[in-house]
Amino acid sequence: MEGLFVILGLALVATVMIVFIQESRIPGVGIMVSVFAGAIIFLYILPKITQVITVFDELASRASLNKFYLATIFKIIGIAYIAEFGAQICRDAGQSAIATKVEFAAKVLVMVLAVPIIAAILESVVRLLP
């Protein structure tokens, strides 16, 4: 709970600073502050994600699930978070075209990661059919 107040204070200070910087002669520094604040918030919240992932790992090993599937899901979540981070910054800076390409690349990477799972599903379906 106290982590939320830390993040909120950081976000408010960063917002005021960015609005101030964008009035100056060098508005690119405003984007840098935005990137920095985003990175700090992400780094602050990552240990909590680690705890959740550890619990999920333990549950999966108790259910004797294949490790490969869970690892793929976590990889997909990581790709989605990072791509969203980058795309939002590009869009904030007014470059929606690059943001769309970043999202497209992330979607393709997720599809590539998902192909083995789809193949496994299809294989089991084929095995079930007479």
């Binding site: 690119g28 990137v35 990175a39 780094l43 680690t50 992932i53 690892a71 990889k75 990581g78």
Partner: peptide, 29 residues
């Protein structure tokens, strides 16, 4: 202006690198 941009980039690039390394470590990417 160019020097200001360069100094700013030098300050934030290590932070971005830390972020990417940590995300890689957490999600096994």
């Amino acid at each position: 202006l160019v020097v200001g941009l360069a100094i700013g980039l030098l300050k934030i690039i290590p932070v971005i690198h830390t972020l990417f390394t940590q995300v890689k470590a957490v999600f096994n990417l």
